[in-house]
Simulated assay, not measured.
Amino acid sequence: MTDLHTDRLLLRRWRDSDLAPWAAMNADPEVRQHLGEPLTRERSDESVARFEAAFERRGYGWWAVEVRATGEFIGFAGLDDIDYEAPFTGVEIGWRLARSAWGHGYATEAARAVLAFGFDTLELPEILAVTTATNLRSQAVMTRLGMTRDPAGDFDDLDAPEGPLRPNVLFRLPRPTEA
């Protein structure tokens, strides 16, 4: 399975040593602000098992992200098949970082590596990104990546409770054409 390298980051498969910091991230209400309620340790560990199973099944998914200089685990970034109720289908990019990693450009850097993998290795025709309408930080990353908002794809996540987690926005990035 492919590790992805950037100047500052390593995107790699998950290790047992990632479980505690991943659980701490998922228990942080600020990290979970646009995702729903904080997760228990058990649910957090189960998510990693799902991530690893997806890698085994299809060869891509959510990579653990670490800072190369220190080896510190700071979150995840990757690709996932859209398998939920939405007015579109495809493969979406995503990321989630610990608060200590916010504001350093890591999400954009990791996402660029993921996009390159999706387009160059998987030869995807398009990569999508979805977030809540109130998640302006993630939308800013999407814009920095060159993604374009597609209001026709915006939808309400009916699995989310009434409130700010329900309205979702869609961004798209087509595969770059060779010049």
Results as ranks from 00 to 15, higher is better:
Phe76Met: 15
Gly94Thr: 06
Gly59Ile: 05
Leu10Ile: 01
Asp16Cys: 10
Tyr60Phe: 14
Gly71Cys: 00
Pro38His: 04
Ala98His: 03
Leu145Ser: 11
Glu123Cys: 14
Thr70Asp: 06
Glu109Ala: 07
Glu52Asp: 15
Ala160Cys: 09
Leu165Asn: 04
Asp18Leu: 05
Trp62Ala: 14
Glu52Arg: 14
Phe117Ala: 03
Asp154Arg: 07
Asp150Tyr: 10
Asp7Trp: 10
Gln33Met: 11
Tyr84Asp: 12
Gly59Val: 01
Arg43Met: 12
Gly90Asp: 05
Ser138Gln: 00
Pro174Gly: 11
Arg175Met: 13
Asp120Tyr: 05
Asp81Gly: 07
Glu72Phe: 01
Met142Leu: 02
Ser17His: 09
Glu126Lys: 08
Met1Trp: 08
His104Tyr: 11
Ile74Tyr: 01
Leu124Ser: 04
Val31Asp: 02
Thr6Gln: 07
Leu79Ile: 01
Met142Gly: 04
Arg41Gln: 06
Arg175Ser: 11
Asp28Met: 05
Ala49Thr: 15
Gly90Cys: 07
Gly59His: 07
Asp83Lys: 14
Met25Tyr: 08
Glu123Ile: 09
Arg32Tyr: 05
Thr131Leu: 09
Val169Met: 12
Val67Asn: 10
Leu39Val: 11
Asp120Pro: 03
Trp22Asn: 08
Thr6Pro: 06
Tyr106Ser: 07
Asp150Leu: 12
Ile93Val: 06
Phe55Gln: 02
Arg144Ile: 00
Phe76Cys: 13
Ala129Leu: 03
Gly59Pro: 11
Ala179Gly: 12
Pro164Gln: 05
Leu39Cys: 08
Ser100His: 09
Pro161Ser: 00
Arg58Trp: 10
Thr70Glu: 05
Ala27Thr: 07
Thr121Gly: 14
Glu30Gly: 13
Thr148Gln: 12
Gly163Asp: 03
Pro38Leu: 03
His34Trp: 07
Val114Gln: 03
Ala98Tyr: 03
Trp102Ser: 13
Val31Ser: 09
Ala160Leu: 09
Arg43Thr: 11
Asp80Leu: 13
Ile127Arg: 06
Leu173Phe: 02
Ala160Thr: 11
Thr40Trp: 04
Ala101Glu: 00
Asp83Pro: 06
Val169His: 14
Met147His: 05
Arg166Ala: 05
Thr143His: 04
Gly103Phe: 08
Trp102Gln: 15
Gly153Arg: 04
